[in-house]
Every structure is written in C-alpha cells, then in structure tokens.
Design a protein around this nucleic acid. Structure first.
Lengths: 128, 128, 128, 128
DNA sequence: GTGGTCTAGACCACA
DNA sequence: GTGGTCTAGACCACA
C-alpha cells in the first residue's frame, strides 16, 4: 500500500501520515473503507507497531480516519478537510497571480506555465 | 508618484522600497529613468529626507537603482532581479500544481481557477 | 574596545565596521559574545548612537553579527565569511605567484619574501 | 614566437604587447636582441602590419624596446621596469600577508600555500 | 541643485 | 535597559 523512503529525514510516523492522507485526498482511499490493521501495516513496513499506532492516532485527531474498538480503523468523511485544503490552495494561487501580474507576465503565459506545471506533476505521479 | 498608507504598520522606508520596486518590476519605471530626488520625495510625502535616503540606500544595495552623487538616483537594469523573481514564482506554481493534483483537482479546473485569479488581480490593479 | 582615527577620511560608521569585523576575523571577538550596546559604544567613542546603529545594521546584513531586540547585539558564526575571505586571498596569491614566476623570481626568493612580509605584519600587529 | 588566442576578447595589439613584454620580463628575450620585423611578425600571425606597428609603438613608449630606423626593433634595458614591477608585487604581498595574519592563518600555512601557488604556476608555464 | 554623513533627540515595542 | 525607526537640521563634496 505504501512505501517508506529511507533517505527521507522526517520521522517515519510523519511519512506514514503523509502517504495515507495523500491517498485519501486523492480519493484512492474512499470513505468508510478499512485501513490495514496497526499490526499488519507494521509487519508490511518492517517497523514497530507503536510507530504505526502514532500515525493512526494523529490521523484520527486531524479527522482523516475513525477507529472502532475491536473492529479497526476506517477512512472518515474528509470532504471538509478537502475543502479547507482547496481554499488554502486557491488563496495562494491568488497571491501568485498578483505577483505574476506585477511582473508583467501576460495571462496567456501565466496559464501556459500553470498547465505545464500540472503536466509535470502528472508524470511524477505516474512514477509513484 | 507613490502614496503611503498610515494604517500600514511597517516602517515608512520599507513601504517606499516596496512601492518603488513594484513600479520598477511592473515596468512603469524604466531603466535609467530618474527617480525623484531624496529631498523632493521627502517633501511630497511629508516625511524626513533621512527616511527616503534609507529607502534609496537599500534599493541601491538590492540592485534596483543606482545613485550618482550630485546628479540623482536612477532605475538600474533590473532584468536579473526580474528573472530571479520569475523563477521563484514558477517554483511555487509547481508545488501548487502538485498539491492540486494530489487533491484530485482536474487540469481544466486548475487552469480555470488560475485564469479567474489572474482576472481578479487585473481589476484590483485598475483600482491602484 | 576600538579607537577611531580622526585623520581617516572614511565615514565613521565604516571605520567601526572595519575595526569590529577585523576583531571578529582575528578571533578576538568570538561567536555569541556580546557587543557593546549601541548607546554605550556611542558614548565611549563620543559619537551619535545613530552612527553606531548604522554600523551594526550593516554588520548584521553582512552576516557578522546578529541583533536581538531589547537584548543586544552578538557575534554571529562567521566561519563562512572567513572561508570566503581565505578563498579570495589564495586566489590573489595565485596571480601574484604567476607574476613572480613571470619576472623570473625563483621560488626560494618568492618564499623568503613572503616570510619576511608575514614577519613585518606581526610586528605591526603588536603595536596595535 | 608568439601565438594569438582567438577566444581572448582583448584587442590583438594588446595581446601582442602582453606576450612580448612577458617574454622580456622572463628574460627569454634579452637586452639588445632583435625583435621580428613588423612585416614578418604580421605575416607569421596573419594579421595587418598596422596592428603589429601599434603594439611595437606602445612597447617603445613604455621602455620595453627601442627602434632604429632602417635596422629594426630591439629589446631595451628593462631592469628599471623589472624593479618597478617587483616593487609593486612585494607591496601586494605585504597587504596579502597582513590579511592572512588578520585571518589567523599561521606563518607555516601562509608559506606552504605560497609555495604551492608557485608550483602550480610552473606547471602552467610548461604548458605555454 | 544632488547624494551622503552625521548629530541631537524623540518615541516605540519588548525583556 | 535593548535595538529600531523617525524627525529636524547641519555640513560636505561635487556638477
């Protein structure tokens, strides 16, 4: 399901949080679908179950997942989280557009570059 | 030429730097065109010449203007500064596109939003 | 701590910058040790605090010192500045050696002169 | 005798001056030895005789060579020029030593580096 | 006239 | 107390 990057300097639990929340944000993990159990994910990644437990705990606190005792962890309804993130993103887009206009970059160039940046991302995504 | 905002909490000299560098970045003040003299700008803004002097000093240090003693201050060739700013901007565009793709926002929506943000900026610019 | 030279035609703030940066380059003022406060140094040198402020401002910009509001100014970690200066010095040494070789000065003479120059410096340093 | 570097951006006559004065400074061209005639050097380098003429004119003005009508150009007694150049060189060595001492570079390191710079020059000279 | 340096002295936020 | 900002006003060298 997910892969750890040993060159990544961040703590492992943070990498897990990022990878899982990304899968949920992308809609690959959908609402109410079950996450792997703490023990099985720990075994898959060859890490300590406590590390997975910590990642799950923080994901629950942030509203990404919910846990039911003796049943497991499941993807929560993350539409509010998605909307917040989208708002933040468009807010930054706005300041970017302002700076671009300030630099005298015409609209066509701005959009052309935006498109190219998006395409680059897709290629990158395929590799992952 | 420029207006100060009394509600702005930043130091006056910083406001002057921002306004003038913006005019140069936008191409409104072009290469080698003369800036108002330290004294005349101070009189226009009803502030102390020392404050203008400080702004000009820092603008010169950053490469925006050049000053010739007993002649005045002039807009420098800011193409390298513009290029640096463009690079920074596109770098941020790239991370933005990545996050958008991560959120499952399709390319059309991303570009549509980028275009709308750019248009909003233009209206804002007209008011200034 | 430092002395001003009234015969020196350079601006006072520049003299202060030179003297202090020299003390730091020599390792006499070490990392994180406090500099005299703007007001106390101004009083010591019988000059205006603004002049000291300007010197400190430029020293901070160049990476020699860091200032904490309401606490004081302190010597920064200047190892990168030292390395840059050493690189510049050895670069000039190289062109000097080339010119010496071009003049037919043998290596022994070149080194003998280098040593004598270094010794003269030491005597000068003792007087300071 | 000498080679021009087409990548060198300086005017050709300046390159000729540099090469010839260098040969004289190095003692490869000795006092009273004849220089190639303007026409023959121009032919050798496939350039216009006027260009060589200009180089010789300036070399004579600087005291490097003397010309006798209908006989040719000859290397002058350049000991005074050598001495001046040596003085300049040692003057710069002195300021270099001061800066090195200021940086806390010990005498051994300074001399070691001076020696290495000299050696590098020799290798470079061999290639020329 | 111009930019640049400096003094004298005020006020601010902060520790 | 500290650094930082700002005003008012002086003087300098230079074109």
């Amino acid at each position: 399901m997910i892969l750890l990057d040993s060159r990544d300097r961040r703590p492992i639990y943070e990498q897990i949080i990022d990878k899982l929340s990304d899968l949920m944000m992308r809609g690959i993990l959908t609402k109410d679908s079950p996450l792997p159990s703490v023990r099985s994910l720990a075994a898959d990644l060859s890490i300590n179950p406590n590390t997975v437990q910590r990642a799950y705990m923080e994901l629950e606190r942030s509203g990404y997942i919910y846990s039911i005792k003796a049943k497991g962890s499941f993807v929560a309804d993350i539409t509010p989280l998605k909307e917040k993130e989208e708002d933040r993103l468009y807010e930054e887009m706005r300041t970017l557009a302002e700076r671009a206009a300030g630099l005298g970059i015409p609209k066509e160039d701005f959009l052309e570059k935006a498109g190219r940046c998006y395409d680059e991302t897709e290629k990158k995504g395929e590799r992952v």
